[in-house]
Design a protein around this nucleic acid. Structure first.
Lengths: 164, 164
DNA sequence: AATTTATGTCAACAACACTGACCCTTTTTG
DNA sequence: CAAAAAGGGTCAGTGTTGTTGACATAAATT
């Protein structure tokens, strides 16, 4: 009776597709106005959440090759959205930080996404929203969940530190 | 006290990114073995859920240009995964159907995604799973929600009809 | 001193999206 | 019935974002 039907999972699959499609389309208009694409957005986002991150660690999060990262990172550095600082302990490392300009763009990019989730929260309430987050966490590969936990925590710290 | 903090939404944004990334990576191995990519997967998936769909309607769901669709659709037709039938009422239309071969591949592709959600369901229970679906539905643009409802229902019908 | 690590860069290539133009067939409209 | 519109196919060119492979440099480690 309470057995799971396959069609339940098909619902879930469709919902993942359409929800992600609308969610990711939000910032596209802003990006295009700046001559950037989604790849630039991803870099901007994870540098924002992990100030001082190294190239190697960023590659690990994005799961792309360094040649692929290099192209968009060069765009962002040349246009003064991201700056590199040579590591204090290890002078081989290039630690990435948003500039004021980069931080401003990042805020603009996440604004529509925050608005979207704010409306969801308003519709379902804080408890259901927390439950949704727990569920989404379980959709992530189990071996990556703790890493994502750390990323989210670090990102939270980065926000409070800059009094954002 | 219970005011929404922006960091709550940042959590949600990160979770969307990582959950979708792992979710969509599931079928990649199978696709590569067949010489197909994610674009082929999307076409296969929506033809499976909407048997007899026209080119125009499929373009509407995928939100790509017909030139972009044509390339992958040609691959799938040439390799006998999808067949076109001339519309009975309107002979201009080319109605798309999966062949037996296409249906088999589609089943293989969704299997790991169904498994993923089955594990989520097992962890949180059917009630929380239903709540998650309602929440995901609210992440979709409000003007598209009813269309997605219809798509999901049609997809459910397509499954029961073929006794899948 | 030799090796490893972190990063950068050049070159070629592939998937997948786009625009613009043009074609054919079939249906609808005036 | 002729003209226009709708559905679909195709050619040509372009851009973004990913890939491999090879090689270079500076700094750290062994």
């Amino acid at each position: 009776m309470s057995k799971a039907k396959n069609s339940d999972f098909n619902d879930a699959i469709e919902l993942m597709f359409f929800a992600y499609r609308d969610f990711i389309a939000d910032p596209d208009v802003i990006l295009e106005a700046h001559g950037f694409g989604r790849a630039h957005h991803r870099v901007l986002h994870f540098v924002a959440g992990n100030p001082g991150i190294s190239i190697a660690d960023l590659l690990d999060i994005l799961r792309v090759t360094k040649q692929s990262l290099a192209r968009v990172l060069r765009d962002l550095i040349d246009a003064d959205y991201i700056e590199q600082r040579i590591g204090a302990h290890d002078r081989r490392k290039r630690l990435l930080h948003l500039t004021a300009k980069g931080s401003a763009l990042h805020s603009k990019l996440i604004a529509p996404q925050e608005k979207r989730f704010n409306q969801v929260l308003g519709a379902i309430g804080p408890q259901a929203f927390e439950q949704w987050k727990k569920t989404m966490r379980l959709v992530i590969n189990s071996e990556d969940r703790e890493n994502v936990d750390k990323l989210i925590e670090r990102s939270r710290d980065a926000r409070t530190e800059t009094a954002n």
